[in-house]
Design a protein around this nucleic acid. Sequence first.
DNA 1: CCTCGCGTTGACTGCGCTGTCAGGACCGTG
DNA 2: CACGGTCCTGACAGCGCAGTCAACGCGAGG
Lengths: 374, 374
Amino acid sequence: MTTTDPGAPAPAVVDGPPSGERRAPVVVMTDVARAAGVSQKTVSRVLNGSAHVRPEVRERVRRAVDELGYRRNAAARALVRGRTHVIGVVGLRSALYGVSQHVMGLERAAQASGYGVVVVSTATGEADEVLRGVERALELGAEGVVLVEPYFDTRALRGPLAGTPVVAAARSAHEGQRAWTVDADQVGGVEEAVEHLVDLGHRCIGHLAGPTTWRSALVRERTWRAAVEARGLAVVEPVRGDWSARSGYEATCELLAREPRGRVTALVAANDHMAVGAMRALAEAGLSVPDDVSLVGFDDVPEAAYLPVPLTTVRQDLALVGERAVASLVELVEGHGRADAGDEPRLDVVPVELRVRSSTGPAPRAAGGGRPPT
Amino acid sequence: MTTTDPGAPAPAVVDGPPSGERRAPVVVMTDVARAAGVSQKTVSRVLNGSAHVRPEVRERVRRAVDELGYRRNAAARALVRGRTHVIGVVGLRSALYGVSQHVMGLERAAQASGYGVVVVSTATGEADEVLRGVERALELGAEGVVLVEPYFDTRALRGPLAGTPVVAAARSAHEGQRAWTVDADQVGGVEEAVEHLVDLGHRCIGHLAGPTTWRSALVRERTWRAAVEARGLAVVEPVRGDWSARSGYEATCELLAREPRGRVTALVAANDHMAVGAMRALAEAGLSVPDDVSLVGFDDVPEAAYLPVPLTTVRQDLALVGERAVASLVELVEGHGRADAGDEPRLDVVPVELRVRSSTGPAPRAAGGGRPPT
DNA sequence: CCTCGCGTTGACTGCGCTGTCAGGACCGTG
DNA sequence: CACGGTCCTGACAGCGCAGTCAACGCGAGG
C-alpha cells in the first residue's frame, strides 16, 4: 500500500508524498473555455444550466465540452459550494436478503433526490465501530448518514457527532432515541401472525428467535411473547438462532427434543430462512407442515411461495423503508437551518402484510398442551 | 427538489442558487491552528502523520482537534491532492443473493486498500444506462469503476470513457473485452456439475436456463450444452427462467409437460433459487428428488444445505471475486503512469467448488430417453 | 568563536470551481 | 439624442487544504 493513509503511523517521508503521484484531471474548465472562445465563468454557467447565456454560445460550449471529454471536478465544486450532495450509508456487512433489498431502495431514492451514496460497512456492528463508520462516511464527504445497523443505540451519537443528520433505518427505535427512525412494522407483523394462528385454533405457539444482536429480533420475540400471554396461552421458551437456515434447523430440533410431542402446534420463525431450516427439522421428525405443525416466517423472500410447502410469512417492503429513510435524511440535511435538532426524533413505521400460504392450517384436534379455548 | 441538478433544464434563477444555501463546515483547520497556537500548515502536518513535528506540538494539535470536533474537508483535500481515493461501483439494482454478497466483498476490500466506495445502481443494465452510470460515478469523484453489470459489453467504453480504469466483475468476458475482468469459474462449475451427474449414470440431463440478459446465464447454458454434446448425450432444449424460484417452478412444469416422463433424469438449474422452484414442481408431479430426478443448483445460498432435500450446488465465492476486482482496480488506478492501457485486458478466474448433497443420486435404472452409455 | 546542517515551523501559493460584481451591448422610451 | 433597463459576459476573489520554500533554533564540528 503506497497511499498515505490518514491517521496511520507516520511514514518516513519528509512532508508529503513525493510529487508526481498526483493525477490531475487532464482537462479543466479553462481548457473548455479556451476551446469555445469564452471565459471560464461562461462555461460554468452553461454547465450549471444558468439562464442568460445566448443559445449560440451555449451550443459552442457544449460542443467544446464533448470534444474535449470534459468532466467537472467534483471536489472543486463541493469545495466552493460547501455542499457535496452525498449521503452515507453505514451498515453491517451482510448478504442477508433484507439488507441488500434495503440498500437498493436507498440508493435509488438518493439518486432520485440528486444525491450520491457512499457506503461504509462495519464488520460487527458494535457501537464504537459504528461511530468510526459514521466518521468515515463524513470524511468521505457525506452530509448525512443512514444507519443500517441492527443494534446500534443512537444515543451513542454524542460529542462532535451530535449534530450530524442521521436516520436509522430498518431497526426498531430505542427508548430515548436520538435519531429519526424508519422501520417496517415489526410489532404489527408478529401480532398479525399470532392472531392468524390463534384464529386457526392453535393454543401453543412456539417461537424461533433471531440473534440478540439484532434489535428487530428482540422486538419480534417480545411481541410474540406479549401476544401469546395476552391471550392466556402457554409460553414455550423460544430457542434462538442467527437468521440462518442452519440455525432454524438446529433450533427446531432442540425445541422438538425439549417439548412433548404434539404440544407445540405452531411455530413463528424470526425470518424465512430460519423457517426453511425448521421445515426440514419437522420433516425429519416425521411431522407434517401444516397438518401437525403450522409455520410462519418473516420477510417474504421471493422463494417463500415456491418452497415444497409454500410459506405463510410477513411481507415487509424494505425497499420502501430505504426510500423513506432517504426522504427523511434529505429533509434533515436540507432543512438544517430551521428548527435544527430541536424537534423530537420522528418514528416512521412502514406497514407490513401477512401473506397466508400453505404452511399454516387448523390446529390438529388432539392438540396436547395449552389451555382449552375460553 | 431545490438542488441545482447538473444537466437538468435551467431553473429560472439568475446565476446560481440563492446564497445562504451553503452549509460550510463549522470548524476548519485554521481554527484548530489558532486553538493550538500553531500555523495551519502544522495542523496539516500532524493530521497527515508527517514526521518533523515535535511530540509536544503534535499532542497540543491533537487535543485541539478533539476539543473542536474538527474533521478534514474531503473536497478540499481531494482538490489539492488531485486524488479522491474513491472508487465507484456501478451495478444492476438487484436484491439477488449473489449480488449483495459481491458488493459487500467489494466494499470491504476497498476500505482495506484505503478507498471509499460510491455506488450507482442502474435499473435495466442497458448499455447507455450503464455508460451514464459510469459518468455519474466519475462525477462523484470515482477514480475508477467496478462494473457489476450482468450483460454490459465493455467495448462500449469508447470516447472519453476509453481511458477510465474499469474492472468488470462477476460476469464472463466478452470476446474483444476492453476491460479487466474478474469472475467465478462459471465454465468449470457447470462442467463439474455435468460430470458429477454423468458419473452417477445420468444420460439425459436437462437445463433450467437463466435470463438471456445475464451473460453468466448464457455461459452456463452454453457450457451445459457443450458438456452434454461432448459426451454424446441427448440435448433436451432448455427452458428459460429469470433466476427466481417462481420461474424455476414454471420452467420445470413446462419441461415436464413437454418431455416424456422418465426421459430427463437430471436437471442443472442456473441458480439455487430456480432449483428451489424446480423441487416444488417435481414434487407436485409426483417425482422424487433424487430418486426420479437429480437436481443441481448454482451459488450455494446458505439455505441450500437445509432445504427439505439438501441441494447439490456449485459454490462460488463472490465476496472473493469482489476483493480481487478491487485489487485489480487499485492496481489500474495507481499504476496509471506506467504501461497505461497498453497491456491487453486481464482475465481473472476465481475457482468454484461443487458441493455434493442429497439432491443428486444414481440415475434410475429404467431411464427412458437418451442413448445407452457407449 | 563561527559555520554547517539538521530538525522544526510558518508564509505563501494554487488546486478547479462558483459567487459577486461590474461592464458592455442592445433595446425601448422620453 | 440621452437615459434607464435588460440581457449577456468576464475579471476577480476565495472555498479549505497540502506543496514549496525559506527561515528559525540549536547542537556538532572546525
